[in-house]
């Protein structure tokens, strides 16, 4: 029993060391800015392909590395305004102010991704397998985080005043329910599921704590 508890405490200390260090690094503003900048382009492309009737642009919020702003506008309305402005044949520029939905990049992705990395680094895997699992897990967790952005955005794009999509009442109730259930707890659960699925096989779970 003592050996098991000792092994558990040792694991906990190692975890706190790795997770604490990674968190401290992630809180350096330049690192946050870099993560924020890395996250936006691919996410913007995915959102643009999911919501093809909308113009979507992801922007960093000035003086706040943890926030990402999604500016959206209806393509149909933009084109309508364009035609009205250029009715006389002149090519005039038009200015469109889109609506903005803002989310916390750290709470949606970064903090939980660091948790995943810390868990994986302490997993009993050979180096090559660890690298592959880390890569696969990173992609899967990134896609989940994008899903977490897609669902609230789907809700906003379906609002009558925005007038871009017009989902049925049934679809809207699904979107509302999914948003209601996508809590921070579910974020953690997804990380744990990815970790168990990628790091463990038939008999290696006993090597995690390395009980002597």
């Amino acid at each position: 029993m003592n050996a098991i508890v000792k092994a558990g405490l040792k694991y906990f200390l190692f975890f706190c060391l790795i997770y604490g260090s990674l968190t401290a690094i992630s809180l350096i503003p330049q690192v946050g800015q870099w993560g924020n900048a890395m996250y936006r382009p691919a996410t913007e492309r995915i959102l643009q392909s999911v919501f093809q009737k909308a113009y979507i642009k992801l922007k960093a919020k000035p003086n706040d590395v943890s926030a990402i702003q999604i500016e959206y506008a209806s393509k149909a309305k933009v084109q309508e305004n364009w035609q009205i402005a250029n009715a006389g044949g002149s090519r005039r520029a038009i200015k469109i102010n889109g609506k903005i939905y803002e989310f916390d990049f750290y709470k949606t992705f970064f903090s939980f991704y660091i948790f995943f990395v810390a868990l994986m680094l302490l997993s009993p895997l050979p180096r090559t397998e660890l690298a592959i699992s880390l890569l696969v897990g990173s992609i899967l967790y990134y896609l989940f985080s994008v899903f977490r952005v897609v669902m609230p955005l789907a809700f906003f794009l379906n609002q009558p005043e925005v007038d871009i999509y017009h989902a049925s009442d049934f679809s809207m109730s699904i979107i509302k329910n999914v948003n209601y259930y996508l809590t921070i707890g579910v974020n953690l659960l997804v990380v744990l599921i990815l970790w168990i699925g990628l790091a463990f096989r038939k008999n290696n779970w006993q090597q995690l704590l390395r009980v002597s």
């Binding site: 098991i4 779970w205 006993q206 704590l209």
Partner: peptide, 10 residues
Amino acid sequence: VLLWFLWMNW
């Protein structure tokens, strides 16, 4: 999670 692994080992 740690308690879970401790229990499994125990």
